[in-house]
Write a protein that binds this DNA or RNA. Structure first.
Length: 595
RNA sequence: CGGGGCGUGGCGCAGCUUGGUAGCGCGGGUGCUUUGGGAGCACUAGGUCGCAGGUUCGAAUCCUGUCGCCCCGACCA
């Protein structure tokens, strides 16, 4: 392609709308334009990158026998009601764009395709003889993100590869999951990305085992906790660890202690010399559901620990099976309390708090949970449920029964690891580019996708699902591969492999040689750009650096002597002046090289 | 939604405090010069100052309302 015909518009200044480097570079280098928040036009250069990524994805999907399909984006609400996800995905902070058609039917714009594909499977897959099957598509997804951000990192419309597998038994699901794990590792490696696999929360998708693939980058939205020995890595949402040992509290019997204006653990400890591990942190929250009335939740943690919201939401969901989708959990404030419920002594809560008078007719008893860090305390300091008063030396069983024990604490960098307490968790930031799940039978049961097994009886299909954010991956690659001058695409996903720069388009010798090389490279099947614009050399060099084509072939003054300059932008071999033949050989040799 | 900020030629910004009818850099066009790291000079085109109302002889500037966008938190590929 000739750059003069490429519709290339590069920007000299950073656009005001962009915050992180990769976003700025993609805009500056003419790869994309924003149409509305979280909605982007992929310009020709970026489209080529997406095509290259897609080609790699297709090859690796083929290697695990996945079949490419294209599923509807406009999806009937009824289907989502049957899986139980309509409310959670549309009400509250739900992320599904939805609409009413002229017949008054509700439809959603697909944020993911479990429902559609399961419906299809229910229709087509009837016998164990047809299994396993894996379908995938590369398609635009729609999500009404609470806050679109960072360009392609969190768009409201983005390209995703999503795959779904169906199995006759769990062992088969595990095998496919493992094969996908391998395919994913190959995909990211072939795209030239440094990616790590981490244990993950399965979130709104559901299911049991799940693993995320993170491109490590400072701009990443996720916090990864990993052990230095490489045996353990997890998203902080999911990570487990050993808390620091608690200091035992010397106390015979529980006594009360006046603690005026000491509402925080810090104030309490500072005033009386307690260690935070001797105290109990009691949090009062309220969970809102799609079906049931709001329910109060009382959480006990050891005073030095932090609550992990994701773990809490998961626990509340499993412990409230009849309540419908969990919409949100927020700290309980006076506004949630009925009538004179202002009596709740915030800042002085103890685990023996009576059920607060929530608004709403039919109310469930308060859900009482304790993290194991709290449950394992012998004697502790906690709020007395009266203003300006704490209890010292309270014990589970004496003060109140031990609540249900669940893992609720947030693991922190520096915590000891479960698999080896001498290992301590280290933090890194990551961009989630892939996520694989063992869904189990969640969707097949809900949508009655059954097959006949070998014994002749019907049972729900076992399912897995596997996503890659294709457009996000493109930007993650830029985040990981750039320098002060611009993008440095990994060769495998660069929009073009070579850019020939004619230093002076007025020199017929240079133009002639450049045209000849251009023709030869194209003939050899190498994706080549020819910068034939009547610009000064400096402009063309700057643009070439900015758009990040891996190899730059400069046809300049030395053209008359049959010499050209070859610049390695994505590797580190720098620049070298070569004869035309040597340069051509070097570039043609790239074809044979693996990624 | 809560908190913070910003809306002025295509892009990046100044002007607003102290009202007097819009400016700078980049980009676009034409010409001459220049020609290996975002050239110089000259000329030129291009703006309802987000929108609506108000105050005023007069509003980009002051007031009210409204819309949009960006950043920090809850979401995820």
């Amino acid at each position: 392609m000739r750059v003069s015909r490429l519709m290339l518009v590069t920007l000299r200044d950073d656009p005001a709308e962009a915050e992180i480097t990769s976003h700025k570079l993609l805009l500056r280098a003419g790869y994309m334009r924003r149409l509305a928040p979280g909605i982007f036009a992929y310009l020709p250069l970026l489209f080529r990158v997406l095509q290259k990524i897609s080609a790699i994805v297709r090859e690796e999907m083929a290697s695990v026998d996945a079949l490419e399909t294209l599923l509807p984006q406009l999806q009937p609400a009824d289907l989502w009601r049957r899986s139980g996800r309509w409310d959670g995905y549309t009400a509250g902070e739900g992320i599904m764009f939805h609409l009413i058609d002229r017949q008054d039917r509700a439809l959603g714009l697909g944020p993911t395709h479990e429902e559609v594909v399961t419906e299809l499977a229910a229709d087509l897959l009837r016998s164990y003889r047809q299994l396993p099957v894996c379908l995938y598509q590369i398609q635009t997804k729609f999500r009404d993100e609470i806050r679109p951000r960072f360009g392609l990192m969190r768009g409201r419309e983005f390209i995703m590869k999503d795959a779904y597998s169906f199995h006759a038994d769990e062992a088969c699901l595990r095998r496919t999951y493992a094969a996908m794990d391998g395919a994913y590792r190959r995909i990211f490696a072939r795209c030239g990305l440094r990616a790590v696999a981490v244990e993950a929360d399965s979130g709104a998708i559901g299911g049991s085992a799940s693993q995320e693939f993170m491109v490590t980058a400072e701009a990443g939205e996720d916090l990864i906790l990993a052990s230095p020995d490489g045996c353990y890595a997890a998203n902080q949402e999911r990570a487990v660890s050993l808390p620091a040992p608690a200091l035992p509290l010397e106390a015979d019997a529980a006594r009360s202690l006046a603690t005026p204006a000491q509402k925080s653990i810090e104030e309490l400890c500072a005033a009386h010399g307690f260690h935070p591990t001797q105290t109990l942190k009691v949090l009062l929250l309220v969970a809102r559901f799609a079906v049931a009335a709001p329910r109060a939740v009382l959480v006990s943690l050891r005073g030095d620990q932090q609550l992990n919201d994701v773990k809490l939401a998961n626990a509340v969901t499993t412990l409230s099976p009849e309540a419908g989708a969990l919409l949100e959990i927020t700290p309980l404030g006076a506004e949630h309390l009925a009538g004179d419920g202002l009596a709740v002594p915030f800042g002085y809560l103890g685990p023996h708090l009576e059920d607060p008078p929530l608004g709403g007719a039919e109310r469930l008893p308060m859900l009482r949970l304790a993290d194991s860090s709290a449950a394992e305390l012998g004697a502790f300091v906690c709020g007395a449920n009266r203003p300006d008063e704490h209890l010292v030396g309270a014990r589970w069983g004496e003060l109140c029964p031990l609540p249900q024990v669940v893992d609720l604490r947030a693991a922190q960098p520096g915590d000891r690891c479960l698999h080896d307490p001498t290992q301590r968790l280290e933090a890194a930031r990551g961009i989630e580019v892939g996520h694989i799940f063992q869904l189990g039978r969640k969707y097949s049961e809900a949508l009655e996708a059954r097959f006949t097994n070998e014994a002749g009886s019907e049972e729900p299909l076992w399912m897995g699902c596997y996503g890659i954010g294709v457009s996000r991956l493109a930007q993650a690659a830029v985040e990981q591969h750039h320098d002060a001058d611009g993008i440095r695409w990994p060769v495998a996903i660069a929009p073009y492999t070579v850019i020939i720069v004619i230093a002076s388009s007025q020199d017929p010798v240079q133009v002639g040689l450049a045209e000849r090389l251009y023709g030869q490279l194209l003939q050899a099947g190498i994706d080549t750009l020819l910068d034939d614009r009547p610009e000064r050399a400096g402009v063309k060099f700057k643009d070439a650096d900015l758009i990040g084509i891996p190899w730059r072939l400069v046809v300049g003054r030395a053209a008359a002597e049959g010499r050209v300059e070859l610049v390695d932008r994505s590797g580190d071999s720098g620049k070298q002046e070569l004869t035309v033949e040597a340069a051509l050989d070097a570039l043609l040799g790239l074809q044979g090289e693996g990624p």
